Computed example of a mutant assay.
Amino acid sequence: MTLFRLILLTLACICTGFFAQAEISDVRIVGNGEPTRITVWSDTAQDAGAFLAQSGGQRSLIVPLEGEISPRVGKGAGGVETWALSSGRLSFALDRPLMVSRVLNLPPTGSATSYRVIIDLETVSPARFASTAKRDMQRLARAESDSRKATYALAAAEITPPGPLRPSERKGDHKYVIVVDAGHGGKDPGTQSARGLLERDVTLKAALYLKDILEKDDRYVVRLTRDDDTFIELEDRVTLARNWGADLFISLHADAAGSPDVAGASVYTISERGERRIDKEADKNDWKIPVETGASKAISGILVDLVKRETKSHSAAFAELLLPELAAAGPVLRGTHRNAGFYVLLAPDVPAVLLEMGFLTNTADAKRLQSTAGRARTMQAVKRGIDKFFDRQEVIVASD
Rank of each mutant, 00 (worst) to 15 (best):
A112W: 09
L210H: 01
E23W: 01
Y115P: 10
A150F: 09
G74N: 09
R37I: 13
I213G: 08
V350D: 05
T44Y: 10
L9H: 14
I29H: 00
V395K: 10
A257P: 05
K175M: 06
S87T: 06
G190V: 15
A327E: 14
W244A: 12
T293G: 14
I38T: 08
V382G: 07
T36E: 03
S271P: 01
A381T: 02
D43M: 03
A155P: 02
A150K: 13
A153S: 15
L197Y: 13
S296D: 05
G78K: 04
A347P: 03
Q393I: 08
V180F: 11
T361P: 05
F342M: 07
T363H: 14
D283G: 12
S300A: 09
L248P: 08
H174W: 12
A141D: 14
V202T: 04
A206D: 08
V103T: 11
Y209D: 14
V100F: 02
F51M: 04
I24Q: 00
R139T: 03
V382I: 14
D391T: 08
A53D: 13
E356I: 05
T109D: 04
F359I: 04
T293N: 10
I302S: 05
R219V: 08
V353R: 01
L121H: 08
R116V: 02
S87G: 02
D349Y: 14
R139G: 00
S114F: 10
G385Q: 01
D387C: 01
M1H: 11
G78A: 03
P331A: 13
L322Y: 11
P161R: 07
D365I: 03
K383I: 12
P331D: 09
R96D: 14
E235S: 07
D400Q: 13
S101T: 15
E122A: 08
V397C: 06
A182Y: 03
A206T: 08
W287E: 01
R368Q: 04
L8S: 07
I386H: 00
P290M: 10
K216P: 03
I302C: 01
D26Y: 00
I69L: 04
G258V: 13
A381L: 15
A77F: 01
T203F: 08
E23P: 00
A143L: 02
G185T: 07
L208I: 12
A12N: 15
D201G: 11
G341H: 06
C15M: 10
K367R: 13
G264F: 05
A22N: 10
F231P: 10
A141T: 12
I69P: 00
A263H: 15
D26I: 00
G56R: 04
R128P: 00
E272Q: 10
K308V: 09
L94Q: 12
V80E: 02
D247M: 10
K75T: 00
P126Y: 07
A153V: 07
R135P: 01
S147E: 13
G335I: 15
S87K: 08
D43N: 11
A155H: 00
D228S: 15
F231H: 14
